[in-house]
Nucleic acid binder design. Sequence first.
DNA 1: ACGTTAACGGACGTCCCCGTCCGTTTGGCT
DNA 2: AGCCAAACGGACGGGGACGTCCGTTAACGT
Lengths: 204, 204
Amino acid sequence: MTDQLPHLARSDARENRARILDAARTLFSADGLDVPMREVARRAGVGPATLYRHFPTKQSLIADAFADQLRACRTIVDEGCADPDPWRGLCLVIEKICELHARDRGFTEAFLATFHEVAAVAPDRVYTVRAVAGLARRAKAAGRLRSDFVLDDLILLLMANKGIHAASTDTQVAASRRFAGLAIQALEACPHHAPLPPSARLTS
Amino acid sequence: MTDQLPHLARSDARENRARILDAARTLFSADGLDVPMREVARRAGVGPATLYRHFPTKQSLIADAFADQLRACRTIVDEGCADPDPWRGLCLVIEKICELHARDRGFTEAFLATFHEVAAVAPDRVYTVRAVAGLARRAKAAGRLRSDFVLDDLILLLMANKGIHAASTDTQVAASRRFAGLAIQALEACPHHAPLPPSARLTS
DNA sequence: ACGTTAACGGACGTCCCCGTCCGTTTGGCT
DNA sequence: AGCCAAACGGACGGGGACGTCCGTTAACGT
C-alpha cells in the first residue's frame, strides 16, 4: 500500500515513518488539518524531532498522508470516464467524490486549500480536473448536463460539500449523499429551468 | 442602530463599547470568528482589559455583534413570508440569506456553530426556522417545492453555502449567488426528477 | 474647582504550539 | 562481539493568545 522508501536503511526508521503516516491519516480524517504536529507524533509514539526529521514541513506530511486518497480520487474519475453514458458517469463521480470527502474531513481541506497554492497534490488534482472536464463536455453534448454548466461549478459543489458538518461520520456521509443528490438535480438539463446567475472564477 | 445601553453612565464607556462592537463586526465579517480577542481590542483602540470588561466571554461579544444581522435575517424571512406566491417568497429567502451569509463570513459560523449549543442567537434562530418552515409548507402545497423536501435541507444548503470561499468578497458573493441559483433548481418540483437519498438529522 | 469612583490599559503569569539542538540509544555490518 | 553511524526523543527558546490584576486616568456630580 505505502511505498517502502528503500533509501531508508534502518528498520526502525521505516516503521516509524509508517506509524507517523498512519497516525496522521487517522487524525487528519477525523479532525481536519489543524491537528498539531506534536499530537501526530504523540499518537505515533515518537518524539517531535523524529516527526520533523521524516517530514520537515506539514505540507509534506499532508501530501504523503493523502496519497491513497488521491489515488482513490483518480480511480473514481477514471471509472466515471469509462462509463459509456457520460451523464451517468458524471453522476457517479459526483456521488463518490462527495462521499469520499465526507468520510475524510482533512482530505477536503487539503484538496481545496492547495487550490491556490503550490503543493504536492497539485499534479493529481489537475489530472482529475482535466478528466472530469472531458466527461462534462461529453455529458453536455449528450444533452443530459445543463448547457450553462461550467467546470467551476464542480469546484463550487466540492467547496459546498466541505461546508457540511455533522456529529458522526455516518450522519456526515448521509447528509453528503443527500447533498450530492440535490446537486445532480441542479445540474441535470431540464427544458424549463431558469437561467443561472453568472459563474465566478474560483480557480486561480 | 445599536442600543444605547443607558446603564452605562460614562460617555467613554459607551463610546468604547460601540467601537469594540464596530471592530468586532468588521473583523468577524472579513475573517470569521477565529480572530483573537486582542486583535479586536487593538482595532478598537482599547486595551484587552476593557474588552473583557464589556464582554466577559467571546460568545457574548459575538451575540451582540451579530444582533443587526439577525434582525436582517428576520426581515428577509418576513418579507419572504409576506409574498403572496410562497415559492417566489422561498426563492427570495434563499437568495437573500445566501448573500447575507456570503458577505459575512463570521455570521455564518455564529449561526451554524451555535446550532448544537446554547447561545444568545438561538431564540431568533428558532423564530427564523419556524417561519421558513411555514413558508415551505405553503410552497409545497402550491406544488412548486418538491414534495420530498424537508427543513433539514435548508440547513444543509446553509452549511454548504458556508463552505464556499473566495479571495474577495465580490467573488464570494457572486459564487454564492450562483450556488443559490443551483439550489433553487434542485428544490423546485419537477415531474421527472429522481427520488432523493434520505435526509440526515442535522438539528439536535 | 475639586473629590469620588467608575472605567481604562499596561503588564503579568499561564498555556500551547512550533521548530531545533544535542546527548543517548540502537540497528546493521564486519 | 564490537564498532559506527544513523536514528531517536527529551528538552529548550521563541512566539502568540488567553484571562486577570492593579496602578492610573479622567468623566461626572456637587
